[in-house]
Nucleic acid binder design. Structure first.
Lengths: 131, 131
DNA sequence: TTAACATATGAGCAATGCTTCAGACATCGG
DNA sequence: CCGATGTCTGAAGCATTGCTCATATGTTAA
């Protein structure tokens, strides 16, 4: 199968048909692409990005994250809700406080990589800071 | 010590003041955070993400990128315009065709890392594919 | 030159997202 | 028990973004 005609179905011109087929075959599934785009979208907001960078050094409560990111506690809570829903952060409750930490090693690596290449080395390595 | 009045300026409560100061000192500048968020924002759209994943294997013309990403050529052109403005891709003109390639090694690493951790290994390594 | 083609660009519309405001819920101190 | 505190949530307002359509620019072919 994989006839060449199934690509030209829409009004899309193709120059290097062989190449297009190869890339399409190697392309991740629609769901994987969507999920990946969602993760990147979570990193695309300055406020959330600050929150996550702060969490690189260990867990923090909501109000301190608000102080660090400069946003209101409500806004930070909304952000954390999103991050939680995508398994990026995890919450630990201690009384009426909620301490958040990075739950995903992938995001930590993405952040480290990005920070490194922005010239801002995040203090060599992060031994997770035994709180 | 550390008078409560210097941080409590806004309506932001702080629990671990020492920790907040440390994180604020280690936090990248506002511009770096913004620029980083912009880059992540470019990766946050499924269409653009497909385009960039396709470009991992080498340069491609606009119409083929449209075929790969499933979007219209106009939409892809708009995407490429954004990516170009942020130095993520670079264009090579050959007659009336325009061939795009990844211009930034950082983004390539981000994409490789992300694809690896999504379980979809993009064919081991990418030796830049000598076109 | 003219016609067809590949891409680039601008305007306008629809959808999504971020923030604030108001209130809810749970917990601690009295 | 009560009020105060920390966090969470829902709705509304506002901005941003991505798409399509139409058009412009530059290139090749006849």
């Amino acid at each position: 199968m994989s006839n060449a005609s199934d690509i030209g179905a829409c009004a899309v011109r193709v120059v290097d048909r062989e190449r297009v087929s190869g890339v399409l075959a190697a392309m991740p599934s629609q769901e994987d692409i969507g999920e990946l785009a969602d993760i990147f979208g979570l990193l695309a907001d300055p406020g959330r990005l600050k929150v996550l960078v702060a969490l690189l050094e260990g867990e923090m409560c909501v109000c301190d994250l608000a102080a660090v990111s400069g946003a209101s506690e409500s806004a930070v809570s909304h952000h954390l809700r999103l991050l939680r829903a995508h398994q990026v952060v995890r919450a630990r409750r201690a009384g009426r406080m909620a301490y958040y930490r990075l739950a995903d090693a992938h995001v930590r690596m993405l952040l480290d990589l990005a920070l490194t290449h922005i010239g801002h080395a995040p203090a060599a390595l992060h031994p997770e800071r035994v709180t």
